[in-house]
Design a protein around this nucleic acid. Sequence first.
DNA 1: ATACATTTTTAGACTAACTTAAAAAAATAT
DNA 2: ATATTTTTTTAAGTTAGTCTAAAAATGTAT
Lengths: 220, 220
Amino acid sequence: MDISHTEENYLKAIFKISERDGKPASTNAISTEMNTSAASVTDMVKRLSDKALIHYERYRGVTLTELGEETATHLIRKHRLWEVFLVDKLHFSWDEVHEIAEQLEHIKSAGLVERLDEYLGFPKFDPHGDPIPDADGNFVIRKQVLLSELKREEQGVVVGVQDHTTAFLQYLDRMELVLGTPVKLLEYFDYDESMRVLINGEREQVLSKKVCQNLFVQKQ
Amino acid sequence: MDISHTEENYLKAIFKISERDGKPASTNAISTEMNTSAASVTDMVKRLSDKALIHYERYRGVTLTELGEETATHLIRKHRLWEVFLVDKLHFSWDEVHEIAEQLEHIKSAGLVERLDEYLGFPKFDPHGDPIPDADGNFVIRKQVLLSELKREEQGVVVGVQDHTTAFLQYLDRMELVLGTPVKLLEYFDYDESMRVLINGEREQVLSKKVCQNLFVQKQ
DNA sequence: ATACATTTTTAGACTAACTTAAAAAAATAT
DNA sequence: ATATTTTTTTAAGTTAGTCTAAAAATGTAT
């Protein structure tokens, strides 16, 4: 009994929603995430339940079973490793790799992921700073805060993004706010919740509320 | 109007059959190649014809249109480049890569293949010695003959296989008859059409008719 | 040239994944 | 607590890709 491409995508969506909301994924939430109708979700949810990948009782929302969660984290592992491959080896930029990795994550092969992991030097984070789960599905937890949470004169290093859109990633490239860049909060403007920051110890820049609330930093 | 995974596989099958038989691919030949029923082929062949990928008249067999042929050779290009990646970079053996490449060849992305090609150093042949078409679909034609066609005392270098099965590839590994190995025909036995050959200039070995008829060499 | 064999197509039906529209259940508000 | 809104499910139908069985067309052999 193997799992289809589509079923895998549902599992990922359910995993993502449960993580984000900290509660069972509702039919509606899944339909929004998957861009399908609620009716399709109900349909699929029955199939996934039959395959013991999720717990489902009608009108009650769904949670992943152990098997379902393993499957989901394994997909995330593959997705993020392929993203590293695309950026590190094929020199794609970080805003180009999501759609390709979305396809590559479904490749089925005993051994491929592990060999890829080794080939890439066992990276712990993907090009967007998201942690890559190990073969057992364990994520590295990193102490990170949003840039907007820094206090005046506090310093941090850019470690990840909350917003993964192309527009945001390209904006960050333009601002040279890549992963690993040191930042220091110089001044906070109450008026529009923007911030003046020192980037890379050499350049001052005012960043909007939206930017500051979508950039993760690790305090130094 | 894009092409499904399944449609792509049919195009590859039709390309392969047409190449091999030098005539339009029959419904039966396709159904054998694809492991489906003849009825399914008739069905699919109508769809492919509607998409202008093949020429089809009922009871007449099918040929690829220019678009269909481009699609098929592009798939072969992707398949073979991924095989090189799997062997050269991830250190899979040549008998393990076919099924994985069979999946990887369907990844859709503008630019991925070209970047992969460059990353691999623009290889002209895959790990089995099959030529990799260029971006325009042109294959390098190599002057090669079957080992069984060598005359006594003639020398050659192993350049490819006709039989791509795991069993044959593993046999060749055991015999150290990898690509690039020099061979020289010492003696031909009429009785069972086997041959005594000098492998790598250092070791004599009797090879069966079947082996000799499935190994390509380039005369020296 | 008719008969037989083979190949191909049609007909009807199945599954997975999807849809819309209507019905039912649950949540919310007064 | 009843009415209204929202969410979820059911019902019925679609498409892609598959199947088996039967019908039709083509090919072959005497």
